[in-house]
């Protein structure tokens, strides 16, 4: 689910950047540091705006200036039970992998409807029910997350398409 979230961050600036456009530099650095990262619980998708850039404080010893910046960001936190759209990246006999934006997820063959079977002889290999559902690399699928786990710098999810309205997205 997406959220607008107020966050705060310490940004340091090298003395060589001290000057008139310091605030822009700080904002720029913030964008560079933060956008697209995963904190372990959510992904920071984009920063809407910054406010409240504090006065810089020189860090003793290094000479860097530290600013405390408040900002508003769009974050995405995948929840268990959430339905997301994803693109298939790899298909094998145990299941298939897909990316829902920054989130890699895995759909095991146990969580695929029994009529959709793995066909290793097809090129490329695919899951198919020999009708309208063909899941191969690049297919858009709608999946339901049934488990997520965070590790340093990334999140992973287990998903299912064994429910109504899940699976291959037609005409996309």
């Amino acid at each position: 689910m997406f959220f607008l979230y107020n966050l705060e961050r310490q940004v340091t600036l090298h003395p060589s950047y001290f000057g008139r456009n310091m605030h822009e530099l700080v904002t720029g650095k913030l964008l560079k540091d933060v956008e697209g990262t995963c904190t372990g619980r959510y992904f920071i998708i984009t920063i809407m705006d910054t406010f409240n850039i504090s006065e810089g404080r020189i860090l003793p010893g290094s000479g860097l200036a530290e600013f405390t910046v408040g900002y508003r960001a769009v974050v995405w936190r995948p929840f268990k039970g959430e339905t997301v759209d994803a693109i298939v990246t790899s298909v094998n006999k145990v299941g298939f992998f897909a990316d829902a934006g920054p989130l890699p997820l895995f759909v095991s063959s146990h969580l695929i409807p029994p009529d959709i079977k793995f066909d290793p002889n097809a090129t490329p290999p695919q899951f198919t029910n020999n009708e309208d559902s063909v899941i191969e690399v690049g297919t858009h699928v709608r999946v339901k997350l049934i488990g997520t786990r965070a590790e340093v710098g990334g999140m992973y999810a287990i998903a299912s398409i064994k429910e109504d309205y899940l699976g291959c997205l037609q005409g996309s």
Binding site: S108, H110, I146, G147, T148, A157
Partner: peptide
């Protein structure tokens, strides 16, 4: 079936 420390069937954290 486990993927990144999660059960691929029930989604539980295996670690």
């Amino acid at each position: 079936v486990q993927f990144q420390g999660m059960c691929g069937m029930c989604g539980k954290d295996m670690t």
